Amino acid sequence: MNNQSNPQLGQLVKIRKGRNTDQAAVIVAIADSKFVYIADGDKRKFDQSKKKNILHLELQPMISSEVVNSLNESGRVTNGKLRYAVHSFLESTNIQAEEKGD
């Protein structure tokens, strides 16, 4: 079993299979040991979160504390917070990619 067996709320993922391949999203709910619900706050809103097989996602080491806190407090998270989490993640990976290129 790979290290991708324990997705966490608020964790960022990269989509590996399906229509949105290579896009980033945030885990907003965990259905069971095989499926999670993801949303990005933009094309995929919190209220229409997508059920995805964990095997089709690449779990990232980053977890958005804002998303986790919001879900724990109210059971919901705003699409703005999701967009911010995805944007922050993409910026951090772009910076890392540029540093590797030097």
Rank of each mutant, 00 (worst) to 15 (best):
M1D: 12
N2E: 13
N3L: 08
N3C: 05
N3M: 08
N3W: 00
N3R: 05
Q4G: 08
Q4P: 02
N6C: 07
N6D: 12
P7K: 00
Q8K: 12
Q11C: 05
L12A: 14
V13P: 03
V13E: 11
K14Q: 13
I15M: 14
I15L: 13
R16I: 06
G18D: 11
R19C: 09
R19V: 10
N20E: 13
N20A: 14
T21G: 04
D22P: 00
Q23N: 14
Q23E: 14
Q23G: 03
A24D: 12
A25I: 05
A25H: 06
A25G: 08
A25T: 04
V26I: 12
I27Q: 09
I27F: 07
I27Y: 07
I27D: 10
V28C: 07
V28A: 04
V28E: 04
A29H: 09
A29S: 14
I30A: 10
I30Y: 10
A31T: 11
K34L: 13
I38W: 02
D40C: 06
G41L: 00
G41W: 02
K43H: 12
R44Y: 08
K45P: 15
F46K: 04
Q48H: 14
Q48V: 11
S49T: 05
K52W: 04
K52A: 15
N53C: 11
N53Q: 09
N53P: 00
I54V: 15
I54K: 04
L55P: 01
H56K: 08
H56I: 02
H56E: 12
H56T: 08
L57P: 03
E58P: 00
L59H: 01
Q60W: 00
Q60M: 09
Q60D: 08
P61M: 11
P61F: 03
M62L: 05
M62W: 00
M62R: 13
I63W: 02
I63E: 04
S64T: 03
S64A: 08
S65Y: 01
S65T: 06
E66C: 01
E66A: 10
V67P: 01
V67R: 09
V68D: 05
N69I: 02
S70V: 04
S70G: 05
E73V: 07
G75L: 03
G75T: 02
V77I: 03
V77A: 01
T78Y: 05
T78V: 00
N79A: 01
N79I: 01
G80H: 09
G80E: 15
G80M: 04
G80P: 00
K81D: 09
L82K: 06
L82R: 03
R83P: 04
R83D: 02
A85L: 02
H87A: 12
S88Q: 14
F89H: 15
F89R: 07
F89M: 07
F89K: 03
F89W: 11
L90D: 14
L90A: 11
L90M: 12
E91S: 13
E91R: 10
E91F: 03
S92M: 14
S92W: 01
T93E: 15
N94K: 10
N94Q: 13
N94T: 13
N94I: 11
N94P: 06
I95E: 15
Q96H: 09
Q96Y: 05
A97L: 14
A97M: 12
E98K: 10
E99T: 04
K100P: 00
K100A: 14
D102T: 02
D102H: 08
D102L: 09
